[in-house]
Computed example of a mutant assay.
Amino acid sequence: MSEQQLQGHQLLIYTDGAARGNPGPGGYGVVLLWGQQRKELSAGYRLTTNNRMELLAVIVALESLTKKNIPLTIYTDSQYIVNAVEKKWLDNWIRTDFKGGKKNKDLWTRYYQLTRHYKPRFVWVKGHADNALNNRCDELATAAADGKHLLIDEGYERSLNV
């Protein structure tokens, strides 16, 4: 798309994460919408948590983008993510190097680096309700968690050996 075509468009991203057992096998699901274009992403992990998968969905969505500094809105059913970003909790966690045992430092740091190129607006949606795209993300996330050839959430598994 040309720069002129980009104007007036906004990328919409829907994300969800799931874990069976929390911790347990988990996965994330993402739906990206740009005008009439739609892309779905998902992956499963052998041992992780729901919050990690919720956050990884956002990260993977942003990392999949080829254009920087475009307007985008991320819809998630994770109040953990919405509050951490919109209420500026993350800024404090970064400033204090995650003191007090704040979890998921590896993923939050990865997300924070992405905010140099993207300033997403987060919108909370009720999970397992009437939002078809959030429900699709949930289907992708749970199918990934239940799949074969699960990946290793190295950040989570490394934290277990502390």
Rank of each mutant, 00 (worst) to 15 (best):
H128A: 10
R38Q: 15
Y118C: 01
Y80T: 09
P120A: 02
G8I: 11
G17H: 09
G26R: 09
N83F: 09
K68E: 14
L90E: 12
G147D: 15
N135Q: 15
K39H: 13
N51L: 04
P25Q: 14
Y28R: 00
V31L: 15
N104S: 04
K99R: 11
K103W: 08
L151T: 02
T66V: 11
Q10W: 05
L62E: 01
A57V: 05
D130R: 07
H128F: 05
K148C: 05
K39D: 09
G101M: 07
E63S: 10
A144W: 05
G44V: 03
L107N: 09
K103N: 11
A129N: 12
K119A: 08
T15D: 01
L107V: 03
C137T: 05
G21V: 14
E63M: 11
S2F: 11
E54T: 03
Q7A: 13
D106R: 00
L55W: 05
K119G: 05
R158C: 02
T48R: 08
H117G: 08
H9N: 10
A18Q: 06
V58A: 12
R110D: 07
N134E: 11
V123A: 11
V58I: 01
T109V: 08
L62H: 03
N131W: 04
D146S: 13
V162A: 13
Q5G: 00
D77A: 03
N131V: 07
H9Y: 12
L55V: 05
D77Y: 07
Y111C: 05
L47H: 10
K126E: 13
K102R: 13
E139H: 08
I74F: 01
I94C: 07
R20L: 15
L41C: 01
Y28M: 02
E40V: 07
R95A: 15
L6K: 13
N131I: 07
K105C: 06
L107F: 02
T76Y: 01
L90T: 13
P25G: 02
L12E: 14
K126I: 08
G29P: 09
G127Y: 04
Y112I: 00
Y28F: 15
Q36E: 15
M1Q: 12
T109Q: 15
G100L: 08
W108E: 02
A57G: 14
L90D: 13
E3P: 01
E40G: 05
R20S: 14
F122L: 10
N104F: 03
E86I: 03
P25D: 02
K105V: 00
L151H: 15
A18G: 07
D138A: 04
R136K: 07
Y111V: 00
I74N: 00
G8E: 04
G44H: 10
N131P: 03
Q10Y: 09
E40Y: 10
T142E: 15
N50P: 06
A43P: 05
W93Q: 06
Y14P: 04
A129P: 00
K88L: 09
W93E: 05
L160P: 06
K119D: 07
P23W: 07
G155E: 12
K39F: 08
V82G: 02
N134I: 07
L133I: 00
M1S: 14
A18I: 04
L41F: 05
F122H: 10
L114Y: 10
N134A: 09
Q7G: 03
I59C: 00
K67I: 14
V31G: 10
R121E: 14
K126D: 11
R158Q: 15
Y75D: 02
